[in-house]
Amino acid sequence: MRGRKSFSMAEIEKLKQLFMEKDEADSDEQMSIRRKMRRMNFYISDFYHDMNYEDFIRLRNSGRITITDIDKKVKSNDVAEFLCNNDDNQSNKIRLGNNENLCSKNAEPQDNENFKEGLEPWVDEHSEILILGSLPSDVSIREQAYYQNKSKNSFWKLMHGLFGEGPDSKEFLTKHHIALWDCLSAANREGSLDSNISGGERPNNIPQLLESHPSIRRIVINGKSTARDYFDRYFYDLHKSSIEIIIVESSSNANSIEFEAKLEDWKKILK
């Protein structure tokens, strides 16, 4: 971690303002704003590959960013008001209690043309390993089955490399105690690329899935960028739990690493 994770309330307020400006800025202006953040010893790359205002609020509410002078200036109930009171264009309020301290991006409107909803989890009572992606491709959503755009993704080839030949099916995975789901249940996205996700994000209830399937002992995050970012945004507390979390090379063919190297990396999910 290059920067700090503790800031005064005045610094938090300044960072909130910079994030609001960044969300509306073009690429050149964003570079200038990020430099201002770095001068405050705040580095976006310490947390995610990219960040917006809501992500920053979520970091603070999860405790990953702390305020150094809370006790001197405000009571605890006032901290939430301070963090989530936005200007006229941003009116989300923090929801206190029951681990719902989120000023959520879910409040963003759906893009009716590009709003994509994911799939139900593939899981049964014998599942031991949960593999998480980000959001299914358009082909998978249309066919209501995971990783169906096989010319663009080597997921099933990796599964057969781990477990031998068989059908590209839920039954094949559950036979080998593998569960499959995504970090997001829905989002605005043009096409199938994760890089085209443009808000409207709704996280899946992964904690509830784990609670209802206690046989799951390991989470595997498919990819070291997008899926990992979404997992950290919405489920960071799982890093503190007893469940093991493993991050592997993305099965997407956009990841230029050779297949044999990917397969070798994925073998660690079975150890």
Rank of each mutant, 00 (worst) to 15 (best):
Q90L: 11
S62L: 05
C84G: 15
S76H: 11
E100W: 04
L96S: 07
S62A: 08
A80S: 13
L96T: 08
K75Q: 15
L102D: 02
N106M: 12
K105Q: 09
N86E: 14
E113K: 07
R95L: 09
N112W: 10
N98C: 02
S76L: 14
E81R: 10
A107I: 13
G63H: 03
K75E: 15
S62I: 02
L59S: 04
G63R: 03
G97M: 02
D88Q: 12
D78A: 11
V74D: 02
L96V: 09
D111G: 00
R64Y: 09
D78I: 04
Q90Y: 15
T68E: 10
R58Y: 09
D71W: 02
S76D: 11
N61I: 06
K105G: 09
Q110K: 08
F56V: 05
A107S: 14
N99D: 03
L83C: 09
S62V: 03
A107H: 11
D71K: 07
K93W: 14
F82S: 00
E81Q: 12
V74W: 00
K73S: 06
R64L: 12
N86C: 09
D71N: 12
K73F: 03
S62Y: 07
E100Y: 07
C84L: 10
K93N: 11
V74K: 06
N86K: 14
L96C: 06
N92E: 10
A80V: 05
I67Y: 03
N61P: 08
I70F: 13
N77L: 10
D111W: 02
L102N: 02
E100A: 09
F56A: 01
N86V: 09
N112M: 06
N85H: 09
N92W: 10
N101K: 08
N99W: 05
D69E: 03
F115A: 01
N61G: 15
I57Q: 14
L96G: 04
K93M: 13
N98V: 05
Q90S: 13
R64N: 07
F56D: 01
R60F: 14
E81G: 07
K72V: 01
K72W: 07
F82G: 00
E81W: 04
N85W: 04
S76G: 05
E100Q: 11
N114L: 02
F82D: 01
F115Y: 11
L83N: 11
D87V: 04
D87S: 07
C103A: 14
N86H: 12
I70E: 12
R58E: 14
P109F: 01
Q110F: 03
K75T: 15
S91P: 12
S104K: 06
T66I: 14
N112E: 15
K73D: 05
D87E: 10
G97T: 00
F115N: 03
N89V: 08
K73A: 04
N77E: 12
C103D: 10
I67R: 02
N86Q: 14
R95P: 00
K105L: 06
N86R: 15
K93Y: 12
F82T: 00
G63F: 01
D87Q: 07
F115S: 01
S91H: 13
Q90E: 15
F115I: 03
G63S: 06
T66F: 08
R64H: 06
N106E: 14
G97P: 00
V79P: 00
N114I: 01
Q90C: 09
N112I: 06
D69Y: 04
A107M: 13
C103I: 05
N99Y: 08
V74Y: 02
D55N: 12
I57N: 10
R58N: 14
D55H: 11
F115M: 01
